[in-house]
Design a protein around this nucleic acid. Structure first.
Ligand SMILES: [Mn+2]
Ligand SMILES: [Mn+2]
Ligand SMILES: [Zn+2]
Ligand SMILES: [Zn+2]
Lengths: 142, 142
DNA sequence: AAAGAAATTGAAAATCGATTTCAAAGAATA
DNA sequence: TATTCTTTGAAATCGATTTTCAATTTCTTT
């Protein structure tokens, strides 16, 4: 089931309407570079849909998070960022504090150790953040 | 060298004054339960120092971070939190989304794998966040 | 098709923690 | 003392996020 279908099903379930604006936002979000902020997406959308409002972009992104198509990230620059969420995979992030580059990484051993830590404290993990901040290769050279 | 000494040395180095307010704030911070917000500390201080202002608490906490006595954390509730930083140890956090309980954990194997991940991307780590969100034992039972 | 009911929209306003401003007060220096 | 500089706290500002609200659109019922 692709994401448009998931979104439709979710909207019907919630008694909401899959409007043209919402379709355009979902589409633009899915074709966006990852980790875009609300404003990134709003500005990108304006080019093709000048009448779309910031509030609608914001509200739709919240809906995408609610139905599991998107995940909200926060890398400490004061702007919430969103990225498409794939049910079958997970990654964490390296964030360059100089140029803003975001690198994604997967490390199953860390995930496993994480589960062991939680188990030791009888803690139920619902989600987690693991972010390494510093300098990417390019920026470290300078 | 204890923290008051570190603070003094830092203040002299920066040409700033170790005022009574700043001393009171440092003292209250060090004796506070960990992970307190600016407002937590401000309200606690008011009891003994009713004339102290929120702005001064905020500014002093920033100074403590700058001189390495405190570290600023953010657990996603919209309030910056501060905790005393010990140079020789490091921990990460489990955060209960129900009752707000914060558990600290240390896992050297994770730290090591983290370094390996960074090395693989030729990434220089300056700092990192690793937080597991979910339910503590108590809250999971209910 | 027309009317009524309900949801959506976007501009503007409100929110809220963090940060800054500024005039008064307090120190240090000459 | 006069001068210069820092600090203070109340209030104002900031900026991203969220909400409000009147107008519009969509859906449902006659
Ligand atoms: Mn990512
Ligand atoms: Mn801690
Ligand atoms: Zn970089
Ligand atoms: Zn709990």
């Amino acid at each position: 089931m692709d994401q448009a279908k998931i979104f439709n099903a979710f909207m019907i379930h919630k008694g909401l309407k899959t409007t043209n604006q919402r379709k355009a936002i979902l589409n633009s979000f899915l074709h966006s570079r990852s980790h875009c902020s609300t404003e990134d997406l709003y500005l990108k959308l304006r080019k093709k849909h000048p009448k779309i409002g910031y509030a609608t972009v914001h509200r739709t992104l919240k809906l995408l998070v609610e139905c599991g198509i998107a995940i909200e990230q926060n890398f400490g620059d004061g702007h919430a960022r969103f990225e498409p969420l794939r049910a079958d995979s997970h990654h964490d992030h390296l964030v360059c504090q100089q140029c803003g580059l975001i690198i994604e990484f997967e490390e199953p051993q860390i995930e496993e150790l994480q589960n062991q830590v939680a188990a030791a404290y009888q803690f139920t993990i619902r989600n987690h953040r693991h972010e390494l901040y510093g300098l990417c290769f390019r920026c470290a050279r300078k």
